[in-house]
């Protein structure tokens, strides 16, 4: 121990001496100063991207929560419009990511923003499903992630060329991010199915189970050729599908026991019981 301490001490001395005379002369030190700068720039960019990605995640999650209220209110259109506004905000943030990535290799920083993008895919596809009852395609998502950026310094210099200085920035969601986002979507659809059963909506669960089955088939088709995370999510997807199918089964069985008009009565009375509660929350 003693010797080690002595060693460390002498080394530090030696180094400070060397630092002193090396800082001006040594090409090694000069080279490492360049590396320091390069690494710092890269790390800073990475951190900024992580930060934006977090914001994107939070806002997308909030949008999803908002969209879940669709089952319990009479006018879904209001909520969908509100979600549109929120998603626009999210897209602005993704625009910031696109700006950070300008001239960079998107894959170099992919890990920094992939959680946010997946969450965004989940939110935007959920909204799309509620509105159109279909799966949003990758192209449709990417088509909305086009941003216009006007460059200020060019603007000042020449006023006759604003169309030139307006730059188009695009952000491309990778197919695997899309896939993982869609896998998350199934969880939301399951929740929506259960809550719509609670609200006495008899059609939605059946429509949802059909849609979920299609997605499930799609994922089975991809199987393990996809990225590693996909196979993990496939398990959760199976569970969600099971729950939805069980709910449909129950509805069908109970529906055959109770005459149609009475079933509607049972559900509508339940809705009136639930509604005031929801209003408070």
């Amino acid at each position: 121990m003693n010797r080690r301490d002595g060693d460390g001490g002498s080394r530090r001395n030696h180094d400070t001496v060397q630092d002193h005379d090396a800082s001006q002369t040594s090409p090694v030190i000069a080279a490492f100063k360049v590396f320091q700068q390069e690494l710092d720039t890269k790390h800073d960019k990475y951190e900024r991207l992580v930060k934006i990605s977090r914001d994107v995640t939070i806002e997308s999650k909030r949008t999803i929560f908002l969209l879940h209220r669709v089952t319990s209110v009479p006018d879904a259109e209001d909520i969908l419009n509100e979600a549109d506004v929120k998603l626009d905000g999210v897209r602005q943030k993704i625009g910031l990511i696109a700006e950070e990535l300008r001239g960079e290799d998107i894959h170099q920083f992919h890990r920094a923003f992939t959680p946010g993008i997946q969450e965004y895919v989940e939110a935007v596809s959920f909204q799309h499903y509620i509105r159109h009852h279909s799966l949003i395609s990758l192209e449709e998502i990417n088509a909305r992630l086009v941003f216009m950026r006007t460059e200020t310094h060019e603007h000042k210099g020449s006023c006759e060329a604003p169309p030139l200085s307006a730059q188009v920035l695009t952000f491309q969601v990778t197919p695997s991010d899309y896939l993982l986002g869609v896998a998350d979507l199934t969880g939301e659809l399951m929740r929506m199915c259960i809550s719509s059963v609670g609200n006495g909506d008899i059609d939605t669960p059946f429509r949802l189970s059909q849609f979920l089955r299609q997605i499930h088939d799609g994922f089975s088709y991809i199987g393990n050729t996809g990225p590693y995370e996909v196979s993990k999510k496939l398990h959760t997807l199976r569970q969600s599908l099971g729950k939805v199918e069980d709910a449909c089964y129950t509805l069908r069985v109970r529906g055959s026991e109770i005459p149609k008009h009475m079933l509607a009565d049972v559900f509508s009375s339940r809705t009136t019981l639930i509604d005031p509660d929801e209003g408070v929350v």
Binding site: L135, I215, D217, G218, I222, T225
Partner: peptide, 19 residues
């Protein structure tokens, strides 16, 4: 685009990637 079409598009991408 139907769900099946979408997934076969993605599958095509993934297998090209693997190649």
């Amino acid at each position: 685009m139907s769900v099946t079409e979408m997934f076969s598009y993605i599958q095509g991408f993934l297998s090209a990637d693997q190649d």
